[in-house]
Design a protein around this nucleic acid. Structure first.
Lengths: 148, 148
DNA sequence: ACATCTATATGATAATTACATATATATAAC
DNA sequence: GTTATATATATGTAATTATCATATAGATGT
């Protein structure tokens, strides 16, 4: 129904490209979490993002690289060129203690966000239990506004 | 720790202004849901947003009014001037069937998003159960990287 | 008459996101 | 050996979104 509309483009309905739209904002906490497990570099982190929940919507490399640089400017990560190993040199990132704190702050924020989404869904389900109503109750018929 | 930083400003850590940052994007599904319950107008919808989860971060009126107009352009709502009642005239919005469909699409998307957040939190908690680790394991001491 | 509350609206700027593309090294194929 | 492909990082620009400030105006209370 929204395939061609601006809103469809905006939110990727129907042809949803990942479990939850693009979730660009979600990239940062993921990077922080991955880096909390082990130091890593952009290309590898993008693979991990794919495995997490960005399967169909490959995260924009531009986003990942710029985010890592920005995190470094904020002193949440530090990077060193890694010329060992195969392939082109990698910029290897390691999480700092400030980065760990940022991750924990994100986790708190995400927990709160989850609660808000739950609250929304609870109310939504209460109203549209089995039927996905598509219009307002007609004042006529059906004896009082109950659906079936 | 992040109070003054760019990231603090960006995500409102510490002085978090609502359960989950500003959640500007979340305004649209909320408006759709409120309107699915009864026709309403901008000012009243802003009050409802406050009650929902935007308590401390009053939603920007500009955002609400522009979003309503944009939804109308997409034929998800229709508006009529309401000159009855007290105070200045209100632009009264009613959800269309397209609007109902959009709400249902949003609900699906939100359910998926919730799952992704849950997945993140699950993994996060597994790693930081009781201790909010703030650095990598030192290779020295403590016999193998276990925390206590 | 003046301030305040309700109500809608817009202009300007700042920040974010998306898309396209550039660069360079290493490896595999022909 | 040179062409294609995979790995790896990076930047420029356009488009979209978000924020902040401000404008307009009717109604109500003092």
């Amino acid at each position: 129904m929204f395939e061609g509309s601006k809103l469809a483009k905006k939110y990727k309905f129907k042809k949803c490209e990942c479990p939850s739209g693009k979730m660009t904002r979600f990239v940062e906490p993921c990077l922080l979490f991955f880096l909390s497990q082990k130091p890593s570099y952009g290309y590898e982190l993008m693979d991990q993002l794919n495995q997490f929940g960005f399967q169909k919507a490959k995260p924009d490399p531009a986003m990942v690289y710029r985010m890592l640089r920005s995190l470094e400017k904020e002193e949440c990560v530090i990077s060193k060129w890694d010329t060992k190993g195969t392939g082109p040199a990698k910029r290897n990132y390691e999480l700092t203690s400030k980065g760990f704190s940022l991750l924990h702050a994100w986790a708190e924020g995400i927990a709160m966000r989850k609660q808000v989404l739950e609250k929304f869904l609870k109310q939504y389900k209460q109203c549209f239990k089995n039927n996905k109503k598509t219009s307002f109750s007609s004042k006529l018929g059906n004896g009082g506004g109950r659906w079936r």
